[in-house]
Design a protein around this nucleic acid. Sequence first.
RNA 1: GGACUGCUAGCUCAGCUGGUUCAGAGCGCUGCUUUGACAGAGCAGAGGUCACUGGUUCGAACCCAGUGCAGUCCA
Length: 881
Amino acid sequence: MELTKHYDPAATESKWYAHWNGLGYFNSIPDNRKPFTVVIPPPNVTGVLHMGHTLNETVQDILVRRARMSGFNACWVPGSDHASIATEARVVAMLREKGIDKNSLSREEFLKYAYEWKETYGNIIYGQIAKLGCSVDWNRTNFTMDDHYYKAVISVFVDLYRKKLIYRGARMIHWDPSARTALSDEEVEYREVEGTLYFIKYPIVGTAEFITVATQRPETIMGDTAVCANPEDSRYHHLKGKKILIPLVNRQVPMIFDDYIDTQFGTGALKVTPAHDINDYTLGLKHGLQVIDTLNEDGTLSPAAEIFVGMDRFEARKKVVERLRNEGFLLKEEAYLTRVGYSQRSHAVVEPRISTQWFVKMKPLAGPALEQVLSGEIRIHPGEKFLATYKYWLENVKDWCISRQLWWGQRIPAWYDSKKRFVVAENEETAITAYRQEFGGLQEGEILTQDEDVLDTWFSSWIWPMEVFRGITEPDNREFRYYYPGSVLVTGQDIIFFWVARMIMAGMEYENEKPFSDVYFTGMVRDKFGRKMSKSLGNSPELLKLIEKYGADAVRFGIMISSPAGNDLLFDEAGMEQGRNFNNKLWNALKLVRGWSSRQAEMAGKIEDPEMNFAVTWFENRLNQGKNEIQQLISSFKLSEALKNLYSLIWDDFCSWYLEWVKPGYEQPIPPTIYAKTISFFEELLQWLHPFMPFVTEEAYHLLKDRKPGDDLCIKQFGSPGEADSKILMTGERLRSLLAAGREFRQQHHLKNIEPINRIVLSVEIFGNNQSLYTIIRRQLNASVIDFKTNEPGNDQPIHLIPFMGHQIGFQTGKKVDVVKHRKNLEEELSYYLGFLESLNKKLSNERFMHNARPEVVALEKKKKEDTEEKIAAIKLTLKS
RNA sequence: GGACUGCUAGCUCAGCUGGUUCAGAGCGCUGCUUUGACAGAGCAGAGGUCACUGGUUCGAACCCAGUGCAGUCCA
């Protein structure tokens, strides 16, 4: 079969994915091997996969495939996350486009739409994961709202409530007026914003005086219930006991004093609005102030505001300022840089709001989670970057607000009676029993009603590593005992608190065992200018289109080649082009080697014995060296470095050097032994590359040789790499330098490749008498004869001597060459070495160096001196001739 | 404001405990090369005061201190 000119990924990828999957290679069941467990960070069912996912999934697939090929029972669990608030927002928007208002729907009707949405996007995501080549076990797909998963989340809630680690209470929380729900602290993102500081005059009751306060939020003055100054601040001492009149609403409030106030900020006087600022809230509690909530849950002004009722908060701000100005209360305005909190999901400006919500007590959970990481039980990669952040967060963690005023998610298992007394229980039935026990029977006709709210989506994902194996619902099942704890978690650094820390907490709380041993943080994928990827910038490429254009292997290559762990990755299609070219290089090497299969024939001479063939011996050792390096890099999670090494091992060492060295001449035969060695080298390279680029390698593996059924690269086990002989490697280096020197000579003297070099003269000390080496030199440099008459110029034709590794080599051609230029180059080289020698001499005659430096360093310097002197001698000799 | 990380070639990054001719790789760039695997290629080449300033040391890209710039997290 004739192979195409270029490798065609589209033709092979779906074929191999179906093949692997069909034979169950990705499916795992417990056996006597060691497990290698990875749970996918479940993508949100909000949309399609982006480049961040692509990076994560690729990294995981590399690790999983490699483990599968290294004797482990590899199990990679796929799944998706219901992503409560994010998905609900998308569904609401989708409905709005259809002209349907969420509020006109019942909970059940809405959930029907949400499940439809989940079905559509969940499947798109799974399709993308498959396209990318991910070797996930499709029999183990989990969704965070699956029945068993739902039950698990509820039972964790009930359990933590019973342990008093969950409580309900009125607290100041972050409110998202757009999604109309509470948020956790982590779901708020702060940004610096240009704001205005308004200086407002508040009349002092019973006097003609004013007190001026500075505020960024004039629309909240209707909720003011005090004015406060620092007790040390002499400017306001005379106001003790006075009442202040709130402009526009004309309410009298007390003047209070507290050392919380910063005398330097603004005027040193603060308006206190306990309902709308966390600090004011605390101050209000301390001083027993009234709380007036002037906002509705959608961010419009409530009746309590008295004026501008029903108007949006930002509109109201303008109106309030306008009226304050008109009525003479506005003293001045100043530009002011301030920090504003935005909802991570809806991007609305969040409001501090007092509200009754459910919370998880975090301190007791944080301790063990911190200990796991600090003790090294869990290793974070790259550690130096994230350890401090992790530690700081856990040491300062605040209670976690887990209730959300949404429908899409696990509904909070609390049941209330008409007096708002409640019990927490798995379901309605047990709730009734529990209620009887606690409060006696229900009144005639009274029913218990379940809490309307659902749980934070992270309250479900924190048990992901356990419940995908039914570890919460059936804690002692065999699979869970086998697969848990997992091996490595690969995820983005942006969810270190949302998810990683909390999974460790849950693991410690429920299993007293970490959920994974290693955490590999990937960076954020940005565009090639370093900007975040976003729809509005149009710089977020579609995964499927990229795969269509370059092939999945090339996409994987492109994203891996430049992604050192933890660093942001600048996405550039050039990397994918490089990957595609790499595919093609492999493809063409394959074509070359396949062409030899019918040309195998015995040849006279020692070259047939692979032991005697330098190319074979050298590559064998080079391959071992490469494998050892790559193994080292992978085990320290330096995947992009490992890929780079493989790339150059294949492209440079194998294709550019080895294959050229063993390549038979035009229509010449190749010894079967050499052919067999070449096939086995190629196979090994494909195997090592397979975890990174699974498709092209599997295809090439099968085209290289006929395979028995079941002999697939996907499950082929690695052998352990042998030792590399450094002497042979050194000879290889020397050979490569010689070939380079010969090519440079040709280039400099415009000697075309088809014009032979008549004679090469070199010292026998350089390469000894391995004949196959000289064959390589003659063929690669197109030289007719090789002579060993050291330092002896030829007779009839001029010979051109070049210093080489302390010796000199000569090239004799029929052509005239540019002697002047040649000499000039040599002289330049000579002066460089003379300078270097001088610095060495200086160092060696420095007594302090000789005294203080380690002996081996001194020996090294002496060796350098000898080498340099040899080289100088060789150059001088060359110049003389 | 606090903490962390980074600053090495045009770009993206290696450079392990200070010491080989150590200033590197890939991409890009420049030149040359088209019948025998591959122009999606081959060969060769040019490119850097290792952010700056001081210090420690026989010796600093590497250690220490300070400065500047960038990014991230937390107030």
